[in-house]
Design a protein around this nucleic acid. Structure first.
Lengths: 340, 340
DNA sequence: TTGAAAGCGCTAACAC
DNA sequence: GTGTTAGCGCTTTCAA
């Protein structure tokens, strides 16, 4: 059994309090006593019991991240990188990270959020993949529970977030394609229920309009962010409107699926048809042809989100409660050259 | 402030003990009293304080996963899928998952493991990416701390693990290439310090020998599991020994990098040179050409590892302490057709 | 059927 | 400087 303060105290014949203070480095402990305490603690291999300390301090020094997972074959590289970002930032400030995996919108997910606002689980929460009028954010706000969101949602109150500027990102991308001479540009959008889909869609509409390009409803199809759905979506899209000369995909994974499908149909991506993605996951530079996409610094976003949460948990007001980062356009071969 | 047992008790004018028992569903509480307790608890929005309960129970109902992370651009899809697997299994058994990110072999990582064996952090630990004579496993074993490993290592004692059979996997893959007529097969191996590299290398050697194929040291180069390193490694490999007709990569990410590099050099993968990977990440079916690889059910491995740990944490002996799963060969276009 | 009391391991206000 | 005491919120003997 592991040693406790009591063990040290009784071994030394002094009180638990003194031991506690000696270990904590208070200066009202005699240097000599302190020395003996330290020695005995080391000898006994004393390690403070975190739970006891947490009960006393009324804080867990733990941050929570409820990760939306889908089926078994769920492995979006986004999450590895995001977790690495928040995890490293948390570790740096001596916070633990509790990760809870649940299907989005599920009953379990609801329970997880209910649990979070319960005391003694985590001190604060990171929310991602926001949805319209996001019930999770509503819940956290109602319970006055500390949280930071990666993404925005349309709720009638203030809340701290970090987000990509999806509108600006799409603006860069659509403009790039328009400049190459494309006039019929399709869009495989991410699930409509996700807020970032709305912004990306908005950016698409805006920039098409700004270039006096028409937008036909058939040019827009929806995917679920996986490669497989990208392949299926592009099939539907091209079957319905073969005259499309460029396809923007809501994320790189879908773009990879779309490219694969187009190639299977015997067309050459970057020549017969331009394809672009969103995210700039590491693979996107290595697929064939390399993918034109919008770069998002996921790791940095994770860090920043976490840093903001740590501020809030500690009662500090973050300098900037709303960080909006503009993605960078990365032009590679998949968007081809001018078709004018 | 959240409601406590005390609040309910004083509101009802009964003792804390009775409230506790009523809520816990003990049958020695009068039905009517129980009813009133339940109602008041609901009215007050009572949620048990987890820390207090944990202190009392002397267990955290939390499992730990110390994730080896590398630089910022770290986003191996493996981890997303693995975490989803352990996370979902943990959630099903009402365990929380604590994820701690650290650079492998770092001082911080050591501290994290030291912390783990401290009481009150987690009840058990999942270890992955084993290394030779893995100090983490040594540490956990010495402290008699519950853990399960994904991977094996060479320590002189028994420990529970789930692992892929890397030797058998490579056997399938090398044989496939040999059957296609390849005689000069290069190997971009994963970092030599990782145990799975050893097994994969062993399988490569064994099967080359079984087919009476020579192995030249120059045919083997090392990568660090990223796409970038796959590209660099294949460059080195082909510069040193251009006569190689097939290249096996230690994982799919490196294979993607290798394919890209080969294509940049103007060669056709699957025709001029065969390439294969290991893991069967979702992307591997969608790259161009699609990747021949060995399928590993990462999600299932995660689940199984976690299930085993939960057994151990609860003092049950898992049926099978050593699970060895043979990867499945997935043949796609990157390995081409017979060159005989 | 209910309550009083102890205790999980720690910290902190206060007294000596 | 050091010890006494109380208390964080809960569970669990043991009495009543």
């Amino acid at each position: 059994m592991a040693a406790t303060l009591k063990d040290i105290a009784s071994k030394l014949g002094i009180s638990i309090t003194t031991v506690s203070r000696g270990l904590a480095g208070y200066d009202d402990v005699a240097a000599e006593t302190r020395q003996r305490i330290l020695e005995t603690a080391a000898a006994l291999g004393y390690q403070p019991n975190l739970i006891a300390r947490r009960l006393q301090k009324q804080r867990t020094d733990t941050l929570g991240f409820i990760m939306p997972t889908f089926g078994p074959r769920f492995s979006d590289p986004f999450f590895s990188e995001f977790i690495a970002g928040i995890g490293n930032e948390a570790a740096e400030h001596e916070y633990d990270l509790l990760v809870s995996t649940h299907a989005p919108e599920s009953e379990e997910e609801k329970q997880a959020y209910a649990r979070a606002t319960q005391r003694g689980w985590v001190d604060g929460l990171i929310v991602i993949r926001t949805r319209e009028n996001d019930s999770r954010i509503l819940h956290l706000h109602e319970h006055d529970f500390p949280f930071v969101v990666f993404g925005r949602t349309d709720v009638p109150f203030e809340y701290p977030y970090v987000d990509e500027d999806g509108v600006a990102g799409m603006q860069l991308l659509v403009q790039h394609l328009a400049d190459l001479g494309h006039r019929r540009i399709g869009f495989i959008m991410p699930p409509a229920g996700l807020m970032f889909s709305q912004y990306r869609l908005q950016g698409y509409y805006d920039t098409m309009a700004a270039n006096n390009l028409p937008v036909i409803p058939e040019w827009i199809v929806e995917g679920d962010l996986t490669q497989r759905s990208g392949a299926e979506a592009v099939k539907r899209l091209l079957a319905a409107t073969p005259q499309v000369t460029a396809v923007i995909c809501g994320n790189d994974l879908m773009a990879m699926g779309a490219i694969n499908q187009i190639q299977q149909d015997g067309k050459t991506v970057g020549v017969d048809i331009a394809v672009a993605g969103f995210d700039d996951i590491p693979s996107s530079a290595y697929v064939n042809p390399p993918l034109t996409t919008l770069h998002q610094p996921i790791y940095e976003i994770g860090r920043q989100t976490c840093a903001m949460l740590i501020d809030i948990v500690n009662g500090r007001t973050p300098e900037n409660q709303h960080a909006l980062l503009t993605p960078t356009l990365i032009v590679r071969a998949s968007s081809g050259s001018s078709i004018l």
